Simulated assay, not measured.
Amino acid sequence: MNKSLKGVLLTGLLSLGAVLPAWAALQEGAEAPKFTAPATLAGKPFTFSLQDALKKGPVVVYFYPSAYTGGCNVQARTFAVNKDKFDAAGASIIGVSLDSIERLNDFSADPEYCAGKFPTASDADGKIARAFDLEVREAKGGAKDTRGKEIDHGFAERTTFIVTPDGKIAATVGGLNPVENVNKSLEIVQKLKKS
């Protein structure tokens, strides 16, 4: 096979992968696992409860691999910049990763990323991610974040769930780049508000 044909095929496969949902993840109509977790908003720790958050409207539960890494930084910033639009649609946001609460305290308050606009929750053992049928990969030694600090935890796949107040998953958003993931999530909650 010549080099240009291989490139076209590879590009096509990568494009297809970018639009496919996360097949292993819980899908539309499934009951969302109820969870509580240590969380932080603007660097202030608290206990997040999905069940309590759902009393106020839909919740965007977005799982990401790690705070202070390239795509996760972009995704957090994009959620923060669009927070008012999510609020207007009646939806709240919670980011979930396997980061420690100490790392998340910094990340949630960082004006470049979460900017204190939405909370992040620590799923240190990956139990919450697994309850949503997400793949959790173990940490590999030597990985460093964008600040040069060692990443000493596992990683959940980047997948977002829109959960309605009745506890059902309205949509699962996976296989997209961080910005598209946020934009698609916003589009879904805006449609929910209209229905």
Rank of each mutant, 00 (worst) to 15 (best):
L9F: 14
P45Q: 06
F79C: 02
A30V: 05
G71S: 14
V136W: 07
C114W: 02
A171S: 14
A156M: 07
A18S: 15
S92Q: 10
L13G: 11
A131N: 08
V173C: 04
V173A: 02
I169K: 08
L10Q: 13
I101F: 09
A42N: 15
Q75T: 01
G12Y: 11
S185C: 13
W23H: 13
F48R: 07
K140F: 12
D125L: 00
A124W: 03
D166G: 09
A88Q: 13
S122I: 02
V8K: 15
W23Q: 14
T36L: 04
L54F: 10
G126N: 04
F161K: 10
Y64G: 02
F63G: 03
K127I: 00
K194Q: 15
F79V: 00
A129N: 02
N82C: 03
S185K: 03
N82E: 12
S97L: 04
N2W: 00
D133K: 15
Y64I: 07
T47R: 11
A131G: 02
D84L: 05
E138N: 10
G154S: 10
I94Y: 05
L16C: 01
I101N: 11
G148S: 08
L20S: 08
F63S: 02
E28Q: 15
G90K: 09
F155Y: 15
K44Y: 01
N73S: 14
K149H: 06
A143I: 12
P119E: 06
